[in-house]
Design a protein around this nucleic acid. Structure first.
Lengths: 352, 352
DNA sequence: TAGTAAATAGTGTACGTACCCGAAAATATT
DNA sequence: AATATTTTCGGGTACGTACACTATTTACTA
């Protein structure tokens, strides 16, 4: 039960090299103050021993503190989606806060892009090492990223990506492929020459841009499968239930469709409409493991939900910053989340 | 960047309680040698401070070493499934071996139940603290568990459970529900009054017992959905390709079916048969994220694979022992894995 | 009531690394 | 050659906890 006392660590390196621990430490962190000769000798020994620093001791002895910010949408009355990433970040934080990590939260309003900049300003005033961003608004986010680069603040993007910038890491779905999977599933729900409606429901144009990628993936699946399914697209900029109801009423008056694919978590709005109007013939597929949605999965109004682990996204985002700064390990530029399929029979076992 | 020096830890508790650090330590580990009065005083302060021990320091200072064993099937020529849990265990091990964890592997042959006992004997001879077991053979596993209880060796079961015993934790699928999900998916693949074949392919009777749970779940789904799908069941005890081919030839000669549900990872055998005989009309659903299976997902012979995160199972199993022994935290008796659905469009993003 | 055993508490070192501070050695300056 | 400067390096303490060992107090025996 007692640990074997095999010689290891800096002490052993120092002994073999005939130098002090401090000198070994200088080499390990390539700090100045070591002659080339001794540095080479020590490097050789390190290599020979295949020395791996004891992370426990390292973190314990280090008195560094890193400050991270979180810039994501606040949970809205309309959808509780953003609770999940926040939960993930909190979970990760509680695991690592002992090791010198401080986290501050800055939440903006998805329905008001000016709030994004307001919160961004606050972040720039303090001295953060890194920030977790959900780049909902393209131009604002691009500006934000540039400014952070100037200030040497490392960015991790979650949930959606934007082009032309290279953050420390992107953690989230492959949106196009996600849409393709939706197509894949829908193929099973309707007949060969069925008719499908792709429904984007989002107030701000920019976030709709991400929805468009899913839309494109959806279509791509049917193209590649050479299926002749008739696909129409509709975008709604008013996200409240009444507006959606009106739009659907109008649309269904003059169209007959077999399936609706809602490109984000607001699929429950449509499900509610189906339920209240007792519409049963139209299949429904959408996004995200939300209480509001699951209830309609349970009673067979929604057939499939596609999920991309929002909690895990937040969790991984903070751990990525931690790995980069505290562990100084290298970090994957892109961390795609799995594309999970949720049905009535497996949702109880899902880990978001 | 420097860590704030707020007083914390045992030292602060000792200061407030007017005792030495050692006394606080005794209370924390409820070791003897502390009067009731001081113990109460210290307990109160601990509570008041909401003291959380620094795990880094704790593990660094602890010289304990724990020995764990792994008793699972070896990877066979027929299916590489068991590579995955092993990989997960190895991954977890590499993360925690710094903290005084030793792991030894004992692999038995799924096609020869006597090898299970042979390996078990070896485990009993050494002095292990815990063991990860895949209890493939019911009676052997039950005996094994009893003996481990005598020897005070904690057991964690993975992949499948057995009744009447209560291991430290079970980590794996809910087999019944897993079958139900299969039914759920198959519903989309065939018409209202289609005909489905449930196919068990397994050499040893016992492991088939687990397959039967999936079979039951499968049927249950159609019962609950009140679908009139005709379900037949066939069990094959010879698992090699030629035997399966012959059995399928014979069966299909006299039966017309729309779908085959294979209750374990050997679905690729059937897929290969379909491919070589150019059978395209029969849908195919089975289990597990294996290279052999994925190739048939890619070329549309297999529609769905159901996966239960075998790597994660191994990973969690070792971490569970770690949590129990090293962290001394409480452990969930049952840790059901999610029931994941794999298709052509999402398998590249799956984490097993 | 001295003497001893048991219960209770404290001191000190170790875990492996980080880093401050000062000493020694090497080099440069006068 | 003596002094100043820079380069190179070692000593020592700290991080928060575990635990062996020692010291003190209390209870018990004869």
């Amino acid at each position: 039960m007692l640990k074997k006392t095999e010689l290891s660590g800096v002490k052993e390196i120092a002994r073999r090299a005939n130098v002090s621990i401090a000198t070994v430490d200088r080499v390990l962190h390539n700090r100045p103050g070591v002659s080339v000769k001794t540095k080479e000798k020590i490097d050789a020994i390190i290599k020979e021993m295949d020395y791996k620093p004891n992370l426990l001791a390292r973190r314990l002895a280090s008195r560094k503190v890193f400050k991270f910010a979180v810039l994501i949408p606040k949970e809205s009355k309309e959808t509780e989606y953003w609770k999940a990433p926040l939960e993930g970040i909190r979970a990760a934080w509680s695991e690592i806060q002992l090791y010198g990590v401080e986290v501050s939260f800055f939440l903006y309003d998805l329905n008001d892009r000016s709030t994004f900049n307001q919160e961004a300003e606050k972040i720039w005033k303090e001295n953060f090492n890194g920030v977790i961003v959900a780049p909902s608004f393209i131009s604002e986010s691009t500006t934000f990223f540039k400014k952070c680069e100037e200030l040497k603040i490392k960015c991790v993007f979650i949930n959606s990506d934007i082009s032309n910038v290279r953050p420390l890491s992107y953690i989230g779905p492959d949106l196009f492929q996600s849409g393709k999977l939706a197509g894949n599933l829908c193929k099973y729900l309707i007949s060969e020459k069925g008719k499908a409606l792709v429904l984007n429901i989002s107030r701000e144009l920019d976030s709709e841009h991400h929805l468009r990628k899913k839309e494109a993936g959806f279509k791509a699946h049917f193209d590649e499968a050479r299926a002749k399914v008739d696909i129409e697209v509709m975008s709604l900029y008013n996200t409240d239930y009444d507006s959606v109801t009106k739009a659907l009423d109008a649309y269904l008056q003059s169209n007959t469709i077999d399936l609706i694919f809602v490109t984000n978590s607001r699929v429950f709005t449509v499900a509610k409409y189906f339920e209240e109007n007792n519409i049963r013939g139209i299949k429904l597929v959408g996004y995200d493991y939300l209480r509001q949605n699951l209830q309609y999965v349970e009673n067979d109004i929604i057939d499939f939900l596609i999920c991309q682990k929002p909690i895990e996204q937040g969790y991984q985002a903070l751990l990525t910053l931690y790995d980069y700064f505290i562990n100084q390990s290298s970090v994957d530029k892109i961390q795609f989340m799995p594309i999970d399929i949720i049905t009535k029979e497996n949702y109880r076992f899902y880990k978001n």
